[in-house]
Amino acid sequence: MTAKPIEADRIWRGIALLAAYGLPIFFILLPLCGFLVYSLFWVEGTELHYELTLVNYRRFFTDEIYVPVLRQTVVLCLEVAGLCIAFGYPVAYFLSGLKGRKKYTLLMLLLVPLLMSYIIKMYAIRSILGGNGFLNRSLIALGIIDQPLTFFVFNLNAVLLTLSVLLLPFAILPIFLSLERIPKNLLEASADLGGSNAQSFFRVILPLSLPGVISAATFVFVLAIGDFLTPQMVGGQSGFTFGRIIYSQFGTAFNWPFGSALSVILAAVVIVAILVGARFGGEKAGVHR
């Protein structure tokens, strides 16, 4: 019982350590680094040149398509975040006022759709929003309009609405958590000092829940800006987003280095969003500071 098991232990431990570091480095870190390097290569026709150059980045900043599309996409995703918060905040606030079991059951029910097939929801929303869709037909049947509305059919508005519905649960959870963390005695103090409900809400609850709102906005923004399938499905010809442009570089346009450069720029935007979220939102900036 002496030397052998310990020797075997050491071998197993070595293998485990190798796997623990090797696999993530090989399949996560290495591809991401390779990706950065790829964005510095260039393509001529169908031939890939493995030479370092900044030509892809120069193209991004000088061509008149890409910067405006990125700006438009960022604005779109901020609008998605805004819509999600506008609907998510009242829901989170409503939940935080409930008691015991009911509160967490409702919260679960609001989060479950996140695990429900994303493609299916996207498809269903498309069939609701379409020119001949459920929404237009209901509005016509109710006599509110007599021509199908087109402002939410296969354009950026459709992308905005679809992404908002898909990502709404991501906004509810952080706001709910920040509302739950507000100590009850602060609200009692506010009431004792003669604060009305509205005053307590705007002077105490709202400011203290802002970190949760910022986390929510960050989550929604990051998830929305990386999505290239939703705009493809509901955006039609005019609903062009940055994600779609990147995807097309790897499909029809077949310019992988340029697509990589665009993705690096996307990653930079995402990192900025995450840093802003980490600085002003979430756990650290919570009630206890």
Binding site: P24, P31, G226, S260, V270, I274
Partner: peptide, 26 residues
């Protein structure tokens, strides 16, 4: 190591997917 493990969860899936696509090809 922990940071590397979290990267694909933090980054948009399109970036994880594309980096793997390029990696597999290379």
């Amino acid at each position: 190591l922990q940071f590397v493990v979290f990267l694909p969860f933090l980054m948009p899936p399109i970036i994880t997917g594309l980096s793997l696509l390029i990696f597999f090809r290379e």
